[in-house]
Design a protein around this nucleic acid. Structure first.
Lengths: 200, 200
DNA sequence: TCTTCCATGTAACGCGTTACATGATTTT
DNA sequence: AAAATCATGTAACGCGTTACATGGAAGA
């Protein structure tokens, strides 16, 4: 009957399963902490909420708004919860990776070593910044004993944040490794295929 | 004068900087190994090649094709190389992450522990598969001494593949950690405030 | 003979971003 | 007085996917 909603629809259902919100609040929640994994603008959220409501997956109560339009506070319905659960457990094709940073590094051989080092240093700083944010968020979550309960939202928050910390730690270590490689080559550059000091 | 091309345009320039190709070949190369970080269909590639040619960033020679249309073999121009280098070293905004798998895990608290374990096991298998492919590819690259030369394409291939290996290793370890957490909780479940992993 | 590969394009559609539009309340 | 925040929508545009369209050569 009801077709499975879009990924954004499922993201919104996941947000509303944790607590009811207005469209505006959803837009803000799709920054931090969910926004670490998925983002959307309000211009995308309002139409999607209308679709979800029409499909019976969410309900809303209206109230007088401060602006010219009425406020709508949405909550997930029983049918919405069923759809969300089905989406979580359904097998999914592994999505193709779109990693702009790695794509740039893939052409790093075209630039001078000094510039290459700058590029990698910037990447490292970016990863380190996100890592710090993840760690702070995770520390918050760990302070609440509910994060040990597999049926509590904070349990899932803990899982995803732990993943974020681990992958960003790996990324920072990778950048450090690249910088070591670049330093080494910059000090004793390899000249062409035919000669030069070859290492390792 | 010439506006910076789209990300896809820069991806294509990066491919052509390594070696000349036809549009068809580019479509295949955007599977493996570049396709690990960026993908595109031929329906997107052909128009983009036309735009790059018009901007003078690539050139092509035509020849008789086997089908009804003429073959075009593209190579990067001097201007294209300059644009590519500038794109590699330019500072870029960190792109928002769109991670469908983590988004799903973020709602993992809504499903029964047994189902949650299945979800994580599937994720682990997926990461492990990609990891194996990266490792095989990296072993290939390491067999060529050119991969130590910072000015050689294989050097950049080595950097990116090393990053892929490291992040996927971290992802597999993360999944194992999650499975341990889920097993632990499944054996001695925490009873929430309302009792059990029940979702309203 | 049928399928796959080589090879190049166009068209329709969906998702996502930026910009447009409105207007009250709170903070600086 | 000006800016930011709260709050909800629409419109235009770009990127990406799927499907449409064509047709020769090679292999099963």
């Amino acid at each position: 009957m009801s077709t499975t909603p879009s990924t954004l629809g499922c993201a919104i259902l996941g947000l509303l399963a944790r607590r009811p919100s207005t469209g505006y609040e959803l837009a803000r929640r799709l920054d931090r902490p969910v926004g670490w994994f998925w983002t959307a603008r309000h211009s995308q959220i309002y139409p999607e909420l209308a679709r979800l409501a029409e499909a019976g997956l969410v309900r809303y109560v209206e109230s007088d708004g401060r602006g010219p339009l009425r406020n709508k506070r949405y909550r997930i319905s029983a049918a919405g919860t069923r759809v969300l659960r089905a989406w979580v457990v359904a097998p999914h094709e592994p999505q193709p990776v779109r990693d702009l940073e790695t794509l740039r590094l893939w052409s790093l051989w075209t630039v001078a070593p000094a510039e290459a080092i700058t590029v990698v240093e910037r990447a490292r700083a970016s990863h380190a910044g996100v890592l710090a944010a993840y760690e702070a968020e995770l520390a918050d979550v760990l302070g609440d004993p509910d994060c040990r309960d597999p049926g509590h939202p904070l349990f899932a928050s803990r899982l995803t944040l732990e993943g974020g910390v681990r992958t960003r730690e790996a990324a920072v270590a990778w950048c450090d490794w690249m910088l070591a490689e670049l330093d080494e080559r910059a000090e004793s550059p390899v000249r062409g295929k035919a000669g030069g000091p070859r290492v390792g």
